[in-house]
Design a binder for these strands. Structure first.
Lengths: 221, 221
DNA sequence: GAGCACTTTACGGGAAACCGTACGGATTTT
DNA sequence: AAAATCCGTACGGTTTCCCGTAAAGTGCTC
């Protein structure tokens, strides 16, 4: 079984959740985690240099820019680098991404060994993924199997902005006004409503409170 | 200045925030953090044993029960132990507690060196507290100075339950019904409304979304 | 430029949240 | 014992949210 795993996710509660799940449910003796790609790469390099390399990496795809400028800003860049340096390392992506085609393209292009969609069953699936990946069997989230092909939903900057404003207590009317002052293309209340509604459908939220709580858990805001 | 600090908080984003703030804004060379009191005590003991003890501890007061049973379940117990073992260690409490009398009693009884109320300016105040504590001057949050004596507000189990239900998307009417099925004393919709309203006043929230987001940030849920 | 698909805006009705007030019962104060 | 306070409940009015429908605007094809 795996001996040394590196967990990379900038959202700490996610990171924590993964590490605790691994500690509790697997025998992997060395679990290292970090919040940014640069540090992940440094830890990876050092481990190789010391003759005790990682044999598994679990990483998110998107990372919010933190206090310091980072050289490696996305999970994809990190994964590319790791593959170059150590071709046989196993890589599991743990991300909110759930568009079948995108995931397909990732796993094909970068030779990913597992792809898990963050969410309610993410940690449960992670535990299923580990032995599968160990046995060289590609693991992909059940959530992906279910999602239909033409689910082209993508969370854009406007969605993030709206979610952040909501979490600050701004109401829909006020958000619309914010957009008007900023000369955004679409500024109507209806538009905001629709955007929020799409997010609620996507995250299977009952209402706005639930939506914002979910997005906080997922590390989107 | 301090050479070695231990940060203890079970909520990871809080933990992360403190560590990053210290790294960025202070010269403290060794920053260690942990999510539970038992581990904190082990780390503390080991550091003493190795002849490289901590000279500052920053800790929360309340810890949620995690996967494993913990021997030390509250910050107060931890602090008592630390004081016994190493009388001169500096201790800063970083908590949501903001009742003047409670804080007074803590600082007096356990010889606390700093008390910071979590919230908007918590990290800013932490940076002010460090040099103050280093110079043996008790630091207490500005927030505490302002809060009136008769602020007897305490977050109880019912508050936590309501907040957790809200974050799961349960609406006020449904929460009232949950209470009715559970034979709780107070089960009316009005009661739920009033509870939520008190929480909103206390956390200075504009609406329920804001309240839940704030409580998630503070690690209450 | 007619037809079509998609996006944005407008509107209206019902549900939930929000907010003030009020009333009865229990407890505390005087 | 009367008065004051606190607590749970009830209720009504306003605002915001929620959701469906429809109209106007935009871009594309033929």
């Amino acid at each position: 079984m795996f001996k040394k795993v590196l967990v990379v996710d900038d959202h700490n509660s996610v990171n924590y959740g993964i590490v605790q799940t691994l500690k509790k449910n697997t025998q992997i003796p060395q679990i290292v985690f970090t919040q940014n790609c640069d540090d992940a790469y440094i830890k990876f390099q050092k481990a190789s240099f010391d003759g005790n390399p990682f044999d598994l990496v679990i990483s998110d795809l998107t990372f919010k820019q933190g206090y310091r400028e980072q050289n490696i800003t996305s999970g994809i860049e990190l994964i590319k680098l790791l593959r170059e340096k150590q071709a046989d390392i196993k890589i599991i992506i743990y991300s909110v991404e759930d568009r079948k085609t995108k995931v397909q393209s990732f796993t094909d292009t970068y030779n990913i060994n597992g792809f898990i969609s963050k969410g309610k069953y993410g940690l449960k699936e992670l535990l299923e993924a580990i032995p599968s990946v160990w046995n060289n069997i590609l693991y992909t989230s059940k959530a992906l199997e279910l999602s239909n092909q033409n689910n082209l939903f993508e969370i854009d900057d406007i969605d993030i902005f709206i979610l952040e404003e909501l979490s600050k207590g701004t109401n829909q009317k006020e958000i619309a006004q914010l957009f008007q002052h900023r000369n955004t293309k679409s500024t109507s209340l209806s538009y905001i409503e629709k955007k929020i509604n799409k997010l609620k459908v996507h995250f299977k939220s009952k209402n706005t409170v639930h939506l914002v709580a979910t997005c906080k858990d997922l590390g989107i805001i």
